[in-house]
Amino acid sequence: MAKDRRPYFTMTNEYPRHRKIRGLSDAAFRLHVTLIALANEETRDGLVSEGDLLAKGAKAKKELITAGLVVALPDGTFALHDYLKHQNSAEEIARYRAEQKERGQRGGIKSAHTRHHVNKGRIDPNCALCPGAEPPEHESEELSEI
Rank of each mutant, 00 (worst) to 15 (best):
E142G: 00
E50T: 11
V33R: 10
L54W: 07
K85W: 09
P135H: 08
A112H: 15
E41S: 12
A27N: 12
H18Y: 10
K59V: 12
D26H: 13
E50K: 12
N88Y: 13
R30L: 04
G68K: 12
D82M: 11
T66S: 08
N126M: 04
H32Q: 06
L24S: 03
P74F: 04
S89V: 06
L64P: 01
R95A: 15
V118P: 00
V70M: 02
F29A: 02
L84I: 07
A79V: 02
I36F: 07
A55P: 00
K56H: 11
G132K: 09
K101Q: 14
A67Y: 09
S140Q: 15
A133W: 07
E50V: 08
Q100S: 07
E92Y: 07
S25A: 04
P125D: 10
A39K: 01
L84G: 05
A112Y: 14
R5H: 07
K85F: 13
E92A: 15
M1S: 11
P135S: 02
H81V: 01
A2P: 09
G108H: 13
T34G: 02
G51P: 01
P131M: 10
A128I: 05
K101F: 05
L24Y: 08
L31F: 12
P135K: 06
G104P: 09
A128K: 12
M1Y: 14
G76S: 11
V118G: 01
G51S: 02
